[in-house]
């Protein structure tokens, strides 16, 4: 295979990563933007979404599409409920103090991980995709007769992967509409701008906090449900996406939706590309160092206006 097909393959895989990553990072970014806390347990909500999808799909049975649809509809709200419970029981009581929240969410991370390990077990389990046709992608090459199309071996994708990308685009648009066009979005943005003034205008800041925390966790869970037919559900699967979403949120600038999407594309696609050519470990080293240096020399992120 020549360079061109490799690049397209890397691009496609990268776009799938970017799709899931943008949903998850958007959740993290919303929580930070509105509540000013860093949720270290965010990756666990992603994992809970995937694990719940496996439970639900198994319980529903029948055609794979039926189980997957049920998981898609049920897992994110359940995860959001869990997150709101954690918010009420823990975060609210420590007054959303930034440092204590980090410690408390590290504690939550351990608790969620261990409970999953005890109930779900250490195995990685797949959920069957609702549809999974293999699609080959043609490529062009120069032949003595001029430009001609051919189907290089190994260059292809599945219909499900394309559907994940489409689903992410639809969901991101929906969130953008929610933030900019609805009353709930207005309340959220008001709280984000100035918590005290918002409270003075009778905005129920406590309820906004709980729902934003739930929404953020729900978005992570959605990402988990979408990825589980491609990548199996496992109790440690939240770790890498958490680091990647931190990276995305930081590079994109906190609380900036377009920035988050652009950064997710940048990170997802470059991760896909670098992984095609270099070892994944080296790709991760480069990515983590890049984030550290962005934070050190440009603390407001590449697109954001506010410092972290």
């Amino acid at each position: 295979m020549e360079l061109g097909p490799y690049l397209i393959l890397g691009l496609l895989e990268g776009l799938v990563t970017a799709a899931v990553l943008s949903l998850m990072a958007l959740g993290l970014s919303l929580v930070f933007g509105v509540m000013r806390v860093v949720n270290v347990a965010h990756g666990e909500f992603f994992m809970v979404g995937a694990v719940l999808a496996w439970w639900i799909a198994g319980a529903v049975g029948g055609h794979p599409a039926l189980g997957f649809l049920a998981a898609l509809l049920l897992a994110p709200p359940l995860t959001a409920g869990l997150a709101m419970l954690a918010d009420q029981l823990v975060l609210k009581r420590i007054g959303y103090d930034p440092e204590r929240t980090i410690v408390a969410t590290i504690g939550l991370l351990y608790v969620i991980q261990q409970i999953t390990l005890m109930t779900y077990g250490p195995d990685a389990r797949p959920v069957e995709a609702p549809f999974n046709q293999r699609l080959s992608i043609p490529f062009v090459e120069w032949t003595p007769e001029g430009l001609s199309m051919y189907w290089p071996w190994g260059l292809g994708t599945t219909s499900y992967k394309l559907a994940v990308i489409a689903a992410a685009v639809i969901l991101l648009t929906a969130i953008w509409l929610l933030m900019t066009r609805t009353r709930y979005g207005l309340l959220m943005r008001a709280t984000q701008l100035d918590r005290e003034t918002a409270q003075a205008f009778a905005i129920p800041v406590g309820r906004v906090y709980a729902s934003v925390f739930g929404l953020g966790a729900g978005l992570a869970a959605l990402g988990g449900v979408l990825i589980v037919p491609i990548q199996q559900a496992h109790y440690l699967m939240g770790h890498d996406p958490l680091l990647l979403s931190f990276i995305v949120v930081i590079i994109g600038g906190l609380g900036s939706l377009p920035g988050t999407v652009v950064a997710a594309l940048l990170i997802g696609v470059s991760d896909g590309m670098i992984s095609v050519f270099f070892s994944p470990t080296l790709a991760k080293i480069i990515a983590t160092l890049a984030v550290a240096f962005v934070l050190i020399f440009r603390p407001q992120g590449l697109f954001g206006k506010r410092a972290l």
Binding site: V90, I94, R100, A104, G107, Y110, V111, Q113, Q114
Partner: peptide, 18 residues
Amino acid sequence: AYMLIAGLVLVALTLFAP
């Protein structure tokens, strides 16, 4: 499940004995 205990201790600490 010692991780569970470590996690609960962390949460309890932030709540009760900062």
